[in-house]
Structures are given as C-alpha cells and as structure tokens.
Simulated assay, not measured.
Amino acid sequence: MSDTPAYGLWSLVIINSVVFIVFAASFIKLETKQDWRSLGAFSAFIVALFTEMYGFPLTIYLLSGWLGREFPGVDFWSHDAGHLLETMFGWRLEPHFGPFHLASNILIIAGFWLLASSWHVLYAAQRDHRLATIGPYARVRHPQYDAFVVIMFGFLLQWPTLVTLAMFPVLVWIYVRLAKREEEASRVEFGTAWDAYARAVPRFIPRLGRGTKAAGSHRGGTVRD
C-alpha cells in the first residue's frame, strides 16, 4: 500500500460530491418536496462519504488504536488503507481490484442504471397522466428508492465509515417514509387503479420469477411512483 497520506484534499471532497450529486439529480425531475428530500438524503450521505475519503478520516482516527493492534504494519493514514474491508479481510495488494471494491463498482453502476431507467419511465407516465407500470415499475413500486439504497450500499462496501454506517439505516427509513407518503397521495387521487397496481407489485423487493402483467394494464394510476 502507498505510504503517501491522501487526506486534507478538500477540493476533491467538493469535486467528487458535486459530480455524484449532480449526476444523480440529472435522472430526477425535481418538482415535488419528495423529489428534493430523496435527493437531499442521498446528497448528505455522499458528502459524508467523500469528507472521510479525501478530507479527514474520522473513522480511522477514532479506531486507530484498535486498527494498529489488530493490523500491525499497515499505514492507515495512506489512502489505500482507507478501503477498510479490503485491509481487514487480508487483501493487502491493490485494493481497487479487491473483491469488495469490485462488488462496490458493480452495485454503484447497477444503482445508477436503475435510477436512470426508473425516472425515464416515471417521466413518461407523468407526461401522459398514467401509472408507471413498465420497466422497473413492473417489478417494484419504488425502484428509484431501491436505486439510491443500492448505490449507498455499494459505497459502503468501497469505503465504510462510522458516520455513513450510522446514516445508512436512517436514510433507508427516510425512503420508506417517503414511499408511504407517496402511496397515500396516489391512493387518494387514483383510487382503485392504484390499489390494483399495489396488489400486483411489491413495494421494494421484487418477486423473483413472477411478472406483473396485471399492473401494466392500468392507465389511470399515479404519476408518482
């Protein structure tokens, strides 16, 4: 691992945070409070992540005593050692090619793909004033929230910190609450069409091997998800 410290780089904190937040926002039509809240929760996670990745490694500072005892000879103030899962599970070579980092990349890419495809379908449904029931919406009712969770979990595998680990379940809870609020509004506005869709399609976790043809037949449903 490199012995060169890689912290205090606040310009990289700002640049990386802006890039990922703007990239995520480019898939979202920010019109409602729920849209802004979902992006805001994700943005808070991203800023906390890159603050420790390039700014100040709070987790390594707080755990430095334990890390030093358990993993002697590792320079935890080098950037490579900040990939804690790779270090703790013995991947001491190039952490960017370690199993956790590779899994992280797959999840992050998959999450952004799901986010893009979900909002594309939702935008078309909003424009036509109908249910979003094709693509990811044929499998789950809130694929965009699934996407945010998958992306955040991918980043946790790549660079786990105490702050982001604490934030993760709170943000998942926020997304669950936002989803339920959207469903309540949709039920009031669209009635039985929404109820039929909700019966056919699970909220977050898809039913493997089962299609949702019944959901796709409704035309008068929510323009939210």
Rank of each mutant, 00 (worst) to 15 (best):
M1V: 11
S2N: 15
P5L: 04
Y7C: 04
G8R: 02
S11C: 00
S11G: 10
V13T: 05
V13I: 05
I14L: 15
V18G: 11
F20K: 09
V22R: 09
F23V: 15
F23E: 08
A24M: 09
A24W: 10
A25R: 11
F27N: 15
I28L: 13
E31T: 10
K33D: 00
K33G: 11
Q34C: 03
W36L: 15
S38Y: 05
L39E: 09
F42V: 12
S43Q: 12
F45L: 09
I46V: 15
V47F: 13
L49N: 06
T51C: 03
M53I: 01
G55M: 01
L58K: 02
S64F: 04
L67I: 06
G68R: 09
F71H: 10
F76T: 02
W77H: 05
D80C: 11
G82L: 08
H83Q: 14
L93T: 14
E94K: 08
H96R: 13
F97E: 10
G98S: 06
A103R: 02
S104R: 01
N105I: 01
L107T: 04
I109A: 12
W113D: 07
L114I: 12
L115E: 06
A116E: 05
H120Q: 14
L122M: 09
L122N: 01
H129F: 14
A132G: 07
A132S: 11
A132M: 02
I134A: 11
R141D: 05
A147G: 07
F155W: 14
L156A: 01
L156C: 04
P160S: 07
V163I: 15
T164E: 04
T164D: 04
L165T: 12
A166I: 07
F168Y: 13
P169M: 00
V170E: 00
V172W: 04
Y175T: 07
R177S: 13
R181L: 10
E182T: 07
E183M: 08
E184F: 00
A185R: 05
S186L: 13
F190S: 10
F190K: 10
T192S: 08
A193G: 06
W194L: 03
A196Q: 11
A196C: 00
R199S: 15
P202G: 11
R203D: 10
F204A: 04
R207Q: 15
G209Y: 11
S217M: 01
R219T: 09
R219Q: 12
R219F: 06
G220L: 10
V223W: 14
R224N: 07
D225T: 03
